[in-house]
């Protein structure tokens, strides 16, 4: 049985506006094993993006315990969370979120510059390698504004992968793409899954849901006990590789 990568136990998130409490997430219990490909779906405002933010350590839960790679990350300091994010998590956003004043290569190198362990590695080569993986090796000196949406998203994927994270969090990765580019991006994600990467993806897109091996349906801040229909495994023609394990031991420095 695959090892647990992330474990949410009784996670709740509330927002307060003056005296009014809005519960975005209510007692979420979720376990994702290494190598799983999970989608988070649900109607607008159901709390899926909030859940993704908590998973990505961009936001803190109001209650509950969140363990990532067996480490309780619920109460980490800002810089400790930044370090975990940098090492263990890769983000893919709907709007790509590339930095417009950095070249493609520099955008991909960016996570490496925040990682103390990567001080002596050849960051440029690693970035080139990742860009080659997503077929963007020929555009390394370009700026994001010079690329199409699909190309930008591929660069964003390369950036998410450059630190070889344990977990990829994708927030509507195909939301801003035409169907051709969306298919290309999904194929890259499929390949990552096959290579053993754990992926959690927020999506409305049924084409995405069709490709994951577990769909989590959220409604009104709660995981729906009986999802509308079980997702089908895509027929990729090849069995997934062993899942990528967490890179770090049970301590945080």
């Amino acid at each position: 049985m695959a090892k647990t990568l992330l474990d949410l136990n009784n996670i709740s998130k509330s927002f307060f506006t003056e005296d009014i409490e809005t519960k975005a997430l209510k007692n979420i219990d979720l376990v994702v094993s290494q190598g799983e490909y999970v989608s988070l779906t649900g109607p607008s405002g159901c709390g899926k993006s909030t859940l993704l933010s908590i998973l990505g350590l961009l936001d803190e839960a109001s209650a509950g315990v969140y363990k990532l790679c067996d480490i309780d990350v619920t109460n980490l300091s800002r810089d400790q969370r930044a370090a975990v994010r940098n090492r263990e998590i890769g983000f893919i956003f709907q709007s790509f979120n590339l930095i417009s004043d950095l070249t493609v290569e520099e955008n991909v190198m960016l996570p490496l510059t925040y990682n103390k362990a990567h001080q002596n590695i050849d960051m440029k080569n690693l970035a080139k390698e990742m860009l080659a993986k997503v077929n963007m090796g020929h555009r390394i000196k370009h700026y994001p504004a010079q690329l199409s949406g699909g190309q930008q998203q591929r660069v964003a994927i390369a950036r998410a992968l450059v630190n070889q994270p344990s977990l990829i969090l994708a927030d509507e990765p195909t939301g801003n793409l035409d169907s051709e580019n969306a298919t290309a991006v999904l194929e890259i994600l499929d390949q990552l899954h096959r290579d053993g990467t754990t992926i959690c993806m927020v999506t409305h897109d049924s084409r995405c849901v069709e490709r994951v091996n577990r769909a989590v349906y959220i409604l009104d801040g709660e995981i729906c006990p009986s999802p509308p229909s079980p997702p089908l495994l895509p027929n990729t023609g090849a069995a997934p590789k062993p899942a990528k394990a967490c890179k770090q031991a049970a301590t945080l420095d």
């Binding site: 990505g56 961009l58 800002r78 810089d79 930044a82 370090a83 975990v84 994010r85 940098n86 090492r87 998590i89 983000f91 979120n97 590339l98 930095i99 417009s100 004043d101 960016l110 996570p111 510059t113 925040y114 990682n115 950036r159 630190n163």
Partner: peptide, 16 residues
């Protein structure tokens, strides 16, 4: 802000 937010998401520590 957006650029800073991306950097934060990519794991930039506060001091960086």
């Amino acid at each position: 802000n957006r650029e800073s937010a991306i950097r934060i998401a990519l794991g930039a520590p506060q001091w960086r």
